[in-house]
Design a protein around this nucleic acid. Structure first.
Lengths: 207, 207
DNA sequence: TTTAACTTGTGAATGAATTCACAAGCTTCT
DNA sequence: AGAAGCTTGTGAATTCATTCACAAGTTAAA
């Protein structure tokens, strides 16, 4: 299969959200034009994005909302449930555990891990906080798909090494640091400091 | 000035972090090669990124660590203090207020706003939580530079409208929704659901 | 049935970002 | 002083992403 750009995938994700919104309002068809307007892009872009995966529309009419939504869920792999573990039960970990959006989209948080005895044994929104020492043993048994890292920067790389060793292929990293991982492991980093610096740059070099 | 790509700015931000690390370890010069290795890119990319802003290195030698760090801080606008307000004092807002990295980099959180009477009047890590009704009045007086939005998706657009009206030019949005803003306002969105869907896509369409 | 008004899907054209490749400069060693 | 060994800065080449533009398909109205 042809390699799909990251930016394309992000847009597909956005299209799906709009479609779900349209669906809930009872609309049955939508044009690339309308989809583009909602997503801040162009209709040609929408059609090109979709064309990588097939042709889902009807000329002169547009796209069937439920059908296209289904296709996008399929493409994005949202038809199955993905098991997530949260590594690091600090403030960010807790905020993530609390976030309703995950479950709604088929992401199920199975456990959180920490090394702080104060936290171990408690729960976050019903999610058990376990001792980080159990990580490998639990993973072997529960086979989570995605590890969310919300540990301090200093510990992030060693946690990557640990979860990769036990077979994780996808990591969402909130630690403000660059991580090394094998090529078959996908790492996405959310770095708030970097975003703020982007804003600082924009404010400084305006026009 | 030539328009600088977003991806370039993100890398500059990463380079600065590495330089600070090198600086703290007492190293005085660094080559584009080493910088590239740390950042997961190529030396040509590093040199091209820097070349948009001038030539800071010495052929045969590399870059002076403190000098380049200083130049990058200048370019990124990190030599002054930026005032931030947090709109929405829920779990994410609280996690952000707690995050030490902001202050270290010259971002100073002046206040958080919420509409929940339970929260108003309390503090988050020393940051006062104020009534959202005061937003405009306070902004006129305190002139914050950046608004961080951590409100539910439904309320996000109306909050954008409010802060933009009072002169905000930079917004960091954590609500999972597409926002409309005037062209001279920079909006960066951090969307965790979208990142997870990117991982889901990668896991589903591997190789 | 014909026409007008839409809309898709997609090659081709354009534009943007990255990588190549090398002249030119600096340092160190002999 | 000359040679060897690095390293930068940057046009040119390449690769990647977006936009254009239009044939072809669909609907609805006359």
């Amino acid at each position: 299969m042809k390699r799909i750009a990251d930016s394309t995938v992000r847009r597909l994700s956005a299209y799906l959200r709009f479609l779900e919104d349209f669906e809930s309002r009872g609309l049955t068809t939508i044009s690339s034009q309308e989809l583009a307007k909602r997503g801040g892009t162009t209709s040609a872009q929408v059609r090109k994005d979709l064309s990588f995966f097939g042709s889902f529309g009807k000329r002169g009419l547009g796209y069937s909302v439920p059908e296209l939504a289904g296709r996008l869920r399929e493409i994005l792999g949202l038809e199955r449930e993905w098991k997530i573990i949260i590594v690091g039960a600090g403030k960010i970990g807790a905020a993530l555990a609390h976030y309703r959006g995950f479950r709604q989209r088929g992401f199920s948080i199975v456990a959180a891990y920490d090394n702080n005895p104060e936290k171990i044994g408690r729960t976050l929104e019903g999610i058990p906080v376990r001792n980080i020492d159990q990580l490998e043993r639990d993973m072997q048994r529960e086979r989570p798909d995605i590890a969310v890292l919300s540990v301090p920067a200093e510990e992030a790389q060693s946690m990557v090494n640990r979860v990769v060793k036990v077979g994780i292929k996808a990591i969402l990293n909130f630690a403000p640091t660059q991580l090394q991982a094998p090529a078959d492991v996908t790492v996405k980093t959310v770095n708030m400091a970097m975003e703020l610096e982007g804003l600082s740059f924009a404010l400084t070099n305006r026009e």
